[in-house]
Every structure is written in structure tokens, then in C-alpha cells.
Write a protein that binds this DNA or RNA. Structure first.
Length: 822
RNA sequence: GCCCGGGUGGCGGAAUGGCAGACGCGGAGGACUCAAAAUCCUUUGCUCGAGAGGGCGUGCGGGUUCGAGUCCCGCCCCGGGCACCA
């Protein structure tokens, strides 16, 4: 494609200038109104892919747009530079993850710089920087001190193909490894946890006030999963003073409890199991322990599998409502980690209990009358209670209240709120992450590394084999140390922290990486926080956002971040994904479309415009054969702007005609349109409005009778300012040509539409007869209803169509439309 | 199964209950050129018609309304999230 100017040279020139002059550096004591714009901390996978490009196009648009509104905009950049992919790649290539990662960082940085995205590079942060690790480890130790970090035995996800433990988010819903596709196994290991469950209530409640997409808020709420119910005892028949503690959200169905179930991990299981049932119970527990998630879920679909998944313990407990004994089963459909690990089973009102009861031939007693057409199955809906003694006739809500009161009085019951959310497992048995800064001593146990010895940085000569053991554990120089308390030989923790810990506070470091001796100065950070606009992918809707929210709350509570708002991200925008051939585009699948080829041909401005123009920013983008053409179309638009600014094929006249006046009005209407589109994140229509304006201006200036020169120049200037956040290079270049020696277009203010010019002098009113358009009339915008009706009925086309018939009704909606009904 | 989104030309997509298809891509025709590229102009929902003009059109079926892509009810299909959480 032949271009009217050297796109590459122009883009390089301006990128260099923004970087060298520190145009987008902002100081913490800046007097202007503040705005914190942030794109999600990227994992350095190499040159940017189109998902990154999309992200930074939106982010940079916000930065430049807000800057034009006179604000001090904080726009930082950095890298989520620890992580498994680099470690795997390094093992494969026989190199070091740091070398590998830093090469990828350089590529990604180059990609975003060539996009023309601007940042305050003085604030750059990357996870494997010892200066960052020092504070990451300090935070860990402060959590430990505050009881927010603890160590416990837990099952983890082990991938045999990758020979390593995986993070939960790396396991597919079907229990396979996201990377290798192998079936993930469960292994029991001593692990470090963060007590995020302490914050469940706050994390749930604070979601309400966030300006986030509703669906992300819903996902957060579902993930936390609050449920209100009752915890109470089912007394043991053998020893009624003791009981099997259960949790239920449906105490009202208590009369329908025909059996109880404990999880295979339940502490009372052994005691409950009678001699003659020992073998079956043991077999079931063994199966449950070794079974992968996949096997457990797969068998739940088929009724045939259910029988094998439960066994009678031989014991009985008493249903406190009916005072009848009911059998206790063990089954893996009850989870050891939720509630009390034991349930009261109500087959008539619960799907799972029903399926289990059917296989094991347990009685089903309805306690809620289902609708007449309901049939055999379980019914969990609303209805009057039956077979329920004192609750008979009550609706579900009042029966719940009555049942709860009963349990509190008679079964050691108490109201209880449970959460689905589990504590955050932060240990990783891998090398390329931030080491957990503790030491194990035979005498003193777990000992924190003294703060003045941080950061603990892993040595370079570690063997990263595939044994599955933490690589650091095999390095004697790292492993063997002395106890900071007693001085005796001790060993270092060999696990590293989940990389989600790094991305949970980086935005605080950005706000103030300058103050020595602190992760960030809370006084400085408070000037920027919360992030005004956070932009990233929907794939982080749950984990990253939840973890970062937890971190900030915890940091405030342990005194590291006094005075900061308790929520980190005020507004969140989640962009759509780039899809190739209908599948999700990801680095692991290798189907990336590098931006570099576009920089060299259409230019960054063209590529940015494409991403803005292709559709609503929240929608997914299908990268197809047509995409190349669309990108070229956007570059064509850039060229047309350039040519018009250079008066290519234009003609001019001197006096200001009504046509010139109308063009001027059109410009102001465009200002109004683009401004509201920008505010509403409708970037595609903002670009369309500018394309329309360009079409209008070009046609006008190329008429033989010509255009009013001063009006064209005024229009061009306004258009360049509107276009500046979208296509920063060409607008900066043209502005400099037109205004040599003056401040850049990016230093001008965002245009404001003149309301007097936005208004139309006359508009076209549509006249319908029975809903069909018969005439168009040019009318004044403030035409009255009566006048509109009269004008419509007088229109010749209407008279002809009516052919003498009398209108039944005339609906006048001036100045848009009149509908004549006959 | 449950909970969210979403179905509009050949394609990406526009449309405070009031002219469906803005803008762009692609297609067709033309100008310029020895020719091509680039650029510019015209045209482009489907369909009947030589034409003027008519009919049909926003996943399907109903409804509300003078008027529905938009609101209501019932379906179908696609995408995403959750999926033994008691």
C-alpha cells in the first residue's frame, strides 16, 4: 500500500520524543487532578499478541484522553515476570528462566512502545527484580506475623506430564492440565496458605459499590459463595449426648431427613464404622483418596456409579425432628472441606440426595408439597409444608425460621454462614517464583527470615529437573542455613510463592516506587489510589481481582497501608478476547498474530484504529481473512486525513457561505458525538463519527466551487484533537506542521462542542400513512404538534395516498415523524 | 442442570419505542493510466418488475402499541461462567 508519508519514520520520531522528553511522566506531588489508568500486569510471553495490543490501545486512549482533560495521569508499566512457562522453556532450551524472561520482556516492551503507548518508565516494576522481591517477602512475613499466612497439609494438583504442581487456575474444569492435557492427580503436601477466608464477608459486601461489569461482580459473588443456614447435631443413637454435626440451608425440610452422610475424610468416620461394615467403608475411602477430580465428577453423571460411591457405616443417628433413627452413610459426594463435612440428607428436596437414596433404596419423604404437575423427582421449590409436624402448612421462609428456632432449642443448633471460598494456597514447588522467606529449625520450628536479610534470592546454578521436588530443595548452598533464632543448622523453605501474589500489590508499588525503605509510602500511594480505570481480560475476572482486593484489605489491616481505600480498582473494563478460527487465542496454543508486521506496513496508528473500530471493546474479535482488509481500511483513513490536511485536490474561496456554515455545524456535532462515545466506551462509533466527518470535509473541500479556507483549517484542527488519543502519531505530526513552535496536539485540551452550532436549523420530518412513509418534509426543529399534523396532511403525496379518505387519527411527533391513520 | 451474555446485509458492526442496515470491509461499474497499482466517483439487504413502482425483511411463534431490532410471554440456536458447596 503506497502511503502519502513515511509512516514508520513519523511514528519512530514521536515515540522517541515522548520517551526522551518524559512527556507522560507524572510526579507524586503534581497539582493537577489525578487519574490512575492501568492495564493489567502482563506476563512477558514475548512480542505482544493482539490481546495485548487491544489492551494497550484502550489504555493509551484513556491516558491521552484524560491528559487532554487537564489531569495528571498515572500510566505505569511492568512485568508479571515470574512463572511456569519461562521455567519450562528454560529447561527445554537448557538456559536460565531469567535470561529467557528478560529477552521476552524486551520484546514485549518494544511492542508496546512501537504501538505508541506512553508510560512513566521511571516507575517500571517487574516481579523478579530483587528490589520488588524484598517487599513481596516482607509482606509475606507480615502476613505470617498477623496470622494471615499459615502452613497446613493439603491436597494439591500434580501434573505428571509437566512433572510439577499446578496452580488451580492451570487445571481445566475437566481435571486435565491446561498446558499438557494430562490428567491432573491429587497429592497431599505441606503447603502455605493465606487466610483469605477471614475476608470473605468483606470481599462479598464490597463488591456492591464497585463500578465493574455486572457479570464480573456476579462471578466474584459466586466464587465467594455465601450461604446462610443452621449447624446442629444429629445425636448418635448409641450415645445421645454426642452428635454428628451437620450444616444445612434447608432446616425446614428436617422431617424429611431419612439418612445422614459424612465425607470420606470425616474425623468421626472410624468411630461411626461398625465392624461388619469396615471393609466397604475402607474401600470407599481408598477410592475417594486416589480418585482424580475427573473420575469423581464423571461417575456422578451416571446412576450406576453412585452405588460404588457410598457405603453404610453401620451407625445410626436420630433425626431431631421426627425422633426416628436414620442410617449414617459415607459418600464422596459430601466434601470434607465444606461446612462440617457431614450432611443431613433430604432426598425429596435435594437432587443429589435423591439420586443417592434411589440407588441405596432409602426412603423418600416429602416435606414440601410440589405443584400438581411435578412428578416423581425431588422438588426444591416453594410450597406448603407437609409431613412436618409443627411446620405443616407454612411456606418455606416461615418454616425455616420455625425449624431454626427448634434446632437452637433442641439440637445444640446455631445459625451459621458458610462460604464456598477456600484459603489461598500460595506454595509452588517450582523454581521461577519468589522464594518463601522462612527457615525450618528442629528446635524453633518455622522461623521467619529477619527482615534485614531480605530479599532471599534463588541462586542461579539450580538444577531444574522433572522430579517434582522443589528445585531449590536440591541446592545445598541454598537449602542449608542456620536458624536465625538459635544458630543451629536449619534448612530454608524451598517452595516459591504463587505468581498471583506478585500481581496482588504491583499497582501500589507503581504509585510510589521512589521512597527508600518501603514497599511504597502509604501517603504517596494514597494520592493515586484507587485505580480510576483498570483494563484487562475477562480471564482474570475471579482470581487476580479477588486476590488483589484481599491483599489491599489485609495490607491496610496489618498497618502497611494506612489511609488507603479498601478497594483497589474503582472502575474495571474487561475487553473481549481475540479469537482465531473460533478458538481462544493464547500463548500456549501459539496462534498469535504479532503486531510487528503491521507496524512496518500500516503503522501503529492504523492498527490502533482497527482495534477501536472493529466493534464494541467488550466484544470478542474474530481474527479472519477479512481482518487484514479492515486494518488496511483504517490505514486508508489515516492517509485521507493526512491528504486533506495537506489540501490535496482541494479548492478554496474567500467568503463564508451557508454551505461553509453547515460544515462548521457538522464539526461541532461530531465533537458532541465523539465525546459522548468516548465517555461511554463506544470507541467504534467514535471512530465512525470521525470517518463521517472526514467524508464530509473531503467532499466539501474538493467541490469545484471550493471551501472557505479558514473554516477548513479550524475543522482540521478540531478533528486532529479528537483523533489524537486514537492515532497519536499522525495527529502529532500534522499538528506540528500546522502549528510549528506551539505545544503538541496532545498538550491541547479536549474540544468542547458549541451547543448553538450543534442544533440543527431545519430537520427532515417523515410523514407516514398507516405506517408507510409517503413524504419527507423539511421543517423547523421546534415545530408544534398542530403545525406538524397540518403540514403532513397538506403534503401532496399524502393527499394522493388518502384519496379523499378521512383520517381516523393523526399521531404527530414533531420534528421527527407524523403518522396518519385511516 | 443453573446463572449471565448474544442472534440485524456476503462480512465486522450502527440504530433515546419513530426513515433498519450509520461507518468500514468485500463486490459491481466508471474516471485517471499504454497498462497496472494507488487514488477518486457511482452503486450495492433480498425479491418481483424493462421502468415507474410493488412485496418481503433484525433467530422462531404470539402479544402490547398509531408504530417494535428495541417492551412483554413462550420457544430455538450460539458463546461464556458455575457445576456435587448441602
Amino acid at each position: 500500500m503506497a502511503r502519502p508519508f513515511d509512516v514508520s519514520a513519523v511514528e519512530k520520531k514521536w515515540q522517541a520524543r515522548w520517551r526522551d522528553e518524559g512527556t507522560y511522566e507524572v510526579d507524586n506531588d503534581d497539582e493537577r487532578e489525578r487519574f490512575y489508568a492501568l492495564c493489567m500486569y502482563p506476563y512477558p510471553s514475548g512480542a505482544a499478541h493482539q490481546g495485548h495490543i487491544r489492551n494497550y490501545t484502550f489504555g493509551d486512549l484513556v491516558v491521552r484522553y484524560q491528559t487532554m482533560h487537564g489531569k495528571a495521569v498515572l500510566s505505569p508499566f511492568g512485568f508479571d515476570s515470574f512463572g511456569l512457562p519461562a521455567e519450562n522453556a528454560a529447561i527445554k532450551a537448557g538456559s536460565h528462566p531469567r535470561l529467557f524472561t528478560e529477552a521476552r520482556m524486551a520484546e514485549l516492551k518494544s511492542s508496546v512502545q512501537r504501538l505508541g503507548a506512553v508510560f512513566d518508565w521511571r516507575r517500571e516494576v517487574y516481579s523478579h527484580d530483587p528490589a520488588y522481591m524484598k517487599w513481596a517477602q516482607t509482606i509475606f512475613l507480615k502476613f505470617l506475623e498477623a496470622g494471615l499466612a499459615y502452613r497446613a497439609l493439603a491436597p494439591v494438583n500434580w501434573c505428571p506430564g509437566c512433572a510439577t504442581v499446578l496452580a488451580n487456575e492451570q487445571v481445566n474444569p475437566d481435571g486435565t492440565c491446561d498446558r499438557s492435557g494430562d490428567l491432573v492427580e491429587r497429592r497431599e503436601l505441606e503447603q502455605w496458605f493465606f487466610k483469605i477466608t477471614d475476608y470473605a464477608e468483606q470481599l462479598l459486601n464490597d463488591v456492591d459499590d464497585l463500578e465493574w461489569p455486572e457479570r464480573v461482580k456476579t462471578m466474584q459473588r459466586n466464587w465467594i459463595g455465601r450461604s446462610e443456614g443452621v449447624e446442629f447435631d444429629l445425636p448418635l443413637v448409641e450415645d445421645p449426648a454426642r452428635g454428628l454435626r451437620v450444616f444445612t440451608t434447608r432446616p425446614d425440610t428436617g422431617f424429611g431427613v431419612t439418612y445422614a452422610v459424612v465425607a470420606p475424610e470425616h474425623p468421626m468416620l472410624e468411630e461411626l464404622t461398625t465392624v461388619d461394615h469396615r471393609d466397604e467403608v475402607r474401600e470407599l475411602v481408598e477410592r475417594a483418596r486416589s480418585a482424580s477430580e475427573l473420575e469423581r465428577t464423571a461417575s456422578s453423571d451416571a446412576g450406576a456409579g453412585l452405588e460404588k460411591r457410598g457405603a453404610f457405616t453401620g451407625s445410626y443417628v436420630t433425626n431431631p425432628f421426627s425422633a426416628q433413627p436414620v442410617p449414617v452413610y459415607v459418600a464422596d459426594y459430601v466434601l470434607g472441606t465444606y461446612g462440617t463435612g457431614a450432611i443431613m440428607a433430604v432426598p425429596a428436596e435435594d437432587e443429589r440426595d435423591f439420586a443417592f437414596a434411589r440407588v441405596h433404596e432409602l426412603p423418600v419423604v416429602r416435606t414440601v408439597e410440589p405443584p400438581a404437575d411435578h412428578g416423581e423427582g425431588p422438588y426444591a421449590g416453594e410450597g406448603p409444608h407437609i409431613n412436618s409436624g409443627f411446620m405443616d402448612g407454612m411456606d418455606v421462609a416461615s418454616a425455616k425460621e420455625a425449624a431454626t428456632a427448634f434446632l437452637v432449642a433442641h439440637a445444640r443448633g446455631e445459625r451459621k454462614v458458610n462460604y464456598r471460598l477456600r484459603d489461598w494456597l500460595v506454595s509452588r514447588q517450582r523454581f521461577w517464583g519468589c522464594p518463601i522467606p522462612v527457615v525450618y529449625c528442629d528446635v524453633d520450628g518455622i522461623v521467619a527470615v529477619p527482615l534485614d536479610q531480605l530479599p532471599i534470592v534463588a541462586p542461579d546454578d539450580v538444577v531444574m529437573d522433572q522430579s517434582g521436588q522443589s528445585p531449590l530443595a536440591t541446592h545445598e548452598g541454598f537449602r542449608d542455613t542456620s536458624c536465625p533464632t538459635c544458630g543451629r543448622p536449619a534448612r530454608r523453605e524451598a517452595d516459591t510463592m504463587d505468581t498471583f501474589t506478585d500481581s496482588s500489590w504491583y499497582f501500589l508499588r507503581y504509585a510510589d516506587p521512589f521512597t527508600p525503605g518501603m514497599a511504597f509510602d502509604p501517603v504517596q500511594a494514597a494520592k493515586w489510589m484507587p485505580v480510576d480505570q483498570y483494563i484487562g481480560g475477562i480471564e482474570h475476572a475471579i482470581l487476580h481481582l479477588l486476590y488483589a482486593r484481599f491483599y489491599l484489605k489485609a495490607l491496610i489491616d496489618i498497618g502497611l497501608a494506612p489511609g488507603l481505600p479498601r478497594e483497589p480498582f474503582k472502575r474495571l473494563f474487561t475487553q473481549g478476547m481475540i479469537r482465531l478460527d473460533g478458538s481462544k487465542m493464547s500463548k500456549s496454543k501459539g496462534n498469535l498474530i504479532a503486531p510487528e508486521k503491521y507496524y512496518d506496513t500500516v503503522g501503529a496508528d492504523g492498527l490502533r484504529l482497527f482495534h477501536l473500530f472493529v466493534g464494541p471493546p467488550e466484544d470478542d474479535v474474530d481474527w479472519t481473512a477479512q481482518t487484514e482488509d479492515m486494518i488496511e481500511g483504517c490505514a486508508r483513513f489515516v492517509d485521507r486525513v493526512y491528504r486533506l490536511a495537506h489540501h490535496d485536490e482541494c479548492f478554496f474561496h474567500d467568503e463564508f457561505t451557508p454551505e461553509d456554515e453547515e460544515v462548521r455545524r457538522e464539526v461541532h456535532r461530531t465533537i458532541a458525538k465523539v465525546t459522548s462515545a468516548m465517555e461511554g466506551w463506544s470507541f467504534n462509533t467514535a471512530v465512525a463519527a470521525l470517518m463521517e466527518l472526514l467524508n464530509t470535509l473531503s467532499r466539501w473541500a474538493r467541490r469545484p466551487e471550493g471551501a472557505h479556507l479558514a473554516t477548513l483549517e479550524e475543522s482540521m484542527d478540531l478533528m486532529l484533537r479528537l483523533l489524537a488519543p486514537m492515532a497519536p502519531h499522525v495527529t502529532a505530526e500534522l499538528w506540528e506542521e500546522r502549528h510549528p513552535g506551539e505545544p503538541s496536539v496532545h498538550a491541547t485540551s479536549w474540544p468542547v462542542a458549541d451547543p448553538a452550532l450543534v442544533a440543527h436549523a431545519s430537520v427532515v420530518m417523515v410523514v407516514q400513512v398507516n405506517g408507510k412513509i409517503r413524504a419527507r418534509l423539511e421543517v423547523s426543529p421546534d415545530l408544534s404538534e398542530g403545525d406538524a399534523a397540518a403540514a403532513a396532511l397538506a403534503a401532496p403525496e399524502v393527499v394522493t395516498t388518502l384519496a379523499g379518505a378521512t383520517p381516523q387519527r393523526v399521531v404527530a411527533r414533531p420534528p421527527r415523524l407524523v403518522n396518519v391513520i385511516v
